[in-house]
Each structure stands twice: as C-alpha cells, then as structure tokens.
Design a protein around this nucleic acid. Structure first.
Lengths: 215, 215
DNA sequence: GTGCGATGTATCGGTCCGATACATCGCGGC
DNA sequence: GCCGCGATGTATCGGACCGATACATCGCAC
C-alpha cells in the first residue's frame, strides 16, 4: 500500500523542486545505504501516479523570465516536478500512519532517512517496531542454527551465522538510537557540520524536531 | 532473467521431492538470512513456470502402494513436485553462468546457500564478484559521507554510517571466505555436526565438492 | 461438538527492477 | 573542423516478487 518510492519522492520534493534525473541522483545519495539505485522503470511511473493523485505538479522550466537567452546551457525537455499542498499533507499522513509495514528493511530505511521530518514520538515508535522485527528474525536464525543445524550444509550455516551477526549488530544500533531518542538528543554524533545547501521550503519543522540549523 | 526463486526451488527439490507448503518452509529456513519468508504469490506461479519448462513434474502422492489405508494421516490434495533430469541440468547451468546479476544481495545470498552444490572455481568467482560489488557500494557511501555531508541531516548521515559499517564488515567476511576457499578448506568452522536427514538424490557431487557426509 | 491453529493450494493487484531505446550537450583528440 | 564518448535527460515494457485474500481440511483441547 504505502509504496516506498512515493514516500521518498514526496519527502525530497519538499526540499526543492526537481526533475527526474536529479531526483534519481538525490534519491540514490539519500538511500544509498538501503537500495543500490532507483530504476527509472519505477521512478517515472511513480511520478505519474503522484501527479494523477494531485500530490505533485509539473512546474515550467526557465525560472523567472521566459524570454531569457535560451541557448545558455542545457535547457531542453526537462520536466521539473514540484510538491503541492496536498502532497505535503499526504507525506505527513504517511509518516503518522507508520504501521507494521514500516518495519521491513526498505520501509524502515526510507522512513529513517526522513526522520528529520518526523516527530519524536513517531521516531520512537518506528525504532521500537523495527527492533522488535529484527529480534524476531534473530530468534528465527538462532532456532535454525540450533535445531536444524545437522540438516544444513556448512555454507548454509555460515550464511545464517553471518545473518545472525548482522541482526545482533542492528539490534544494538537500534538500542543506542532509542536511548538517544529518549534522552531528547539527535543521533549519535550530536551535530556534524552545518546545514548548508538549498532549503527553499518554508514548511515549519514538526514538533520535537531535531535538525541541523545554520549557526 | 535468472529468477532467484526458480534457482532455489531447483536446488531444494534436488534434495528430495516436496509439496508447496513444505517447500516454502525449507526455503524460509535455508534463506532466512536473506529473505523474510517466501510468498505463495511467488511460489505457486514459479512452480507452474518450472513445470511448463519441464524442469519439474508433479509426482503422485501415496508413495508405493496405492491401496494403503487412506485415512492414516493427512493425505488429501497435496501436490508433490519432483525435479527432472532437465531440471538438474538447468540448475547446473544456472550455477555455471553466475554472471554479474549474481552479485546483488538476493542473488548472491541464494547462490551462496547452494555453494555445497557449486564447484570451487565458481564459488571463488562469485565471492570475488560479490566483494567487488560491495566495495563499490562502500566507496559510494564514503563519497556521500565525505563530500555531501553538509547537505544531509544527522539522521540520514547516521543511516549512511551504519550502511558503511555493514559494507566494511561484509568485505572482511568475504575476504575470510575467499582465503578459506583458496586454501581448499570448507567455510570457517570446518565441519559442524553430521549430515543427517533425507538425502535420496544420488546425483554425484560436483568436482571439488566439500560437503558433510554421514560418518 | 466446537472453535482454533497448523496444514495446504491458489489468485489478484500492485510495486519495483533491468534492459532497452532514443535524443542532446560539452569536451577532448585527431 | 568534426567525431566519438560520457554525462544528462525522458520514457516504456516485460517480468519477478510481495501482501492480502480466499477457501478447505485436520487434529486437538476445552
């Protein structure tokens, strides 16, 4: 139902309007730890879906004056997308819902990537839901390694061991994040660098927000 | 093209015939570290596809004598699948190909799970391909953490850091496996337990095989 | 005797990927 | 002067896989 890409695009377009190619690059940078690279075969259909729903619109290229020198640099068939008020509402709604489907690998990753736009209570709920899910996976792997070990070959066992290790590690990571969250601080390293770059949107940060700001 | 499920089913059915439900359980046990649980919405269509290709066949239930006491235990509409000679050939072929598509998370995982049926040269090739892929991902994450750090909020950065950590860890794991493989030994713990359970297939193990055997 | 959880088969809609196609732009090499 | 090549850019198609759902049977506990 929730559609990971839809969510991510709405989140990114809230920072600034973008065309498809740029969107893909930003998406890849932001979700690099989660997904390898977003396929155009998903991106463009999703954009059309979002447009059909009224969550985003096509914005005309050539920013202010239309009769500028047209041959300056590349300015051809680019289609710039822009989020609508309904889109922002939708995004907030998707965050607020944040059900069990949010706890699988991809769903969690993409939600986490937009934690800066998520209120603290929801952050905590998501982190705990995710931890629970990983703990279950961990128990499943332990079961297999314990009970069914004789039925499996050495390679399969090694794979399970590696997976189990990753689970234990992630649980510990989540514990830290949860502790940090409860103490009201931002993630591990309190404040890395300053938030530069573009920030044209003027939507107020959600309550309980912890976000890098210009000093 | 390669279809992960197709490969895994062929691999499992080589150990013994099974019906859908059982197949799903075994699949989930074997790939627990890779995928959460295989959906029936993938399983059944794939079985039909394999059947259409002649790689597997439906085997009649009620093993030897047909006129046995029919009401012993559950013995109703179960459909048991069995691999064909063509299926075994196909599986071997899929292993031999083992191209770049084998190096993504799922593809690698499922191939690794069947390393006991893979010759050493191919194992090495797959491990090295995977390592290369992860190293690339690692470099990508390092780039983002280095160059684009100011553009991203603290949570996104934390996500990248965690991803980077996982990459480094996996590279190290792969290094170990590769070293082991080169030295001709089985994975880390040389021989855990003894291979019990069913092993009705009589296909000869591929050359260079390392596999648990009954003592 | 009745409900309930495990076993068991199956379909449908939808998300997302990988391959592919195609067109433009700026740059360096020859 | 021009030619290819890699980056930029939009777009479609077929297929793999998932999640929800439906439905039927079996054995057991209460």
């Amino acid at each position: 139902m929730a559609a990971v890409l839809e969510f991510a695009i709405l989140g990114l377009l809230q920072e600034s309007p973008m065309h498809g190619y740029e969107l893909r690059k930003e998406l890849t940078a932001k979700l690099g730890a989660i997904r390898a690279a977003i396929s155009y075969g998903s991106l463009y259909p999703t954009l059309r879906r979002l447009q059909a729903g009224g969550w985003i619109t096509e914005a005309a290229e050539t920013p202010a004056t239309a009769e500028e020198v047209p041959a300056l640099t590349s300015r051809r068939g680019r289609v710039v997308y822009k989020i609508t008020a309904e889109g922002k509402e939708r995004f907030a709604q998707l965050i607020a819902q944040a059900g069990p489907e949010t706890y699988d690998d991809t769903g969690f990753g993409v939600h986490f990537a937009f934690f800066a736009r998520t209120d603290q209570a929801t952050r905590l709920r998501i982190l705990e839901g995710r931890r629970r899910k990983i703990e279950e996976r961990r128990e499943g792997l332990r079961d297999v390694l314990g009970r069914a070990a004789e039925r499996l070959d050495a390679y399969t066992l090694e794979l399970q061991r590696h997976g189990l290790d990753a689970c234990e590690r992630e649980v510990r990571w989540l514990e830290e994040l949860i502790a940090n969250e409860r103490s009201g601080r931002a993630p591990t390293v309190p404040n890395i660098g300053t938030a530069g770059g573009r920030r044209e949107d003027n939507s107020p940060p959600p309550p309980g927000e912890t976000r890098n700001e210009r000093p």
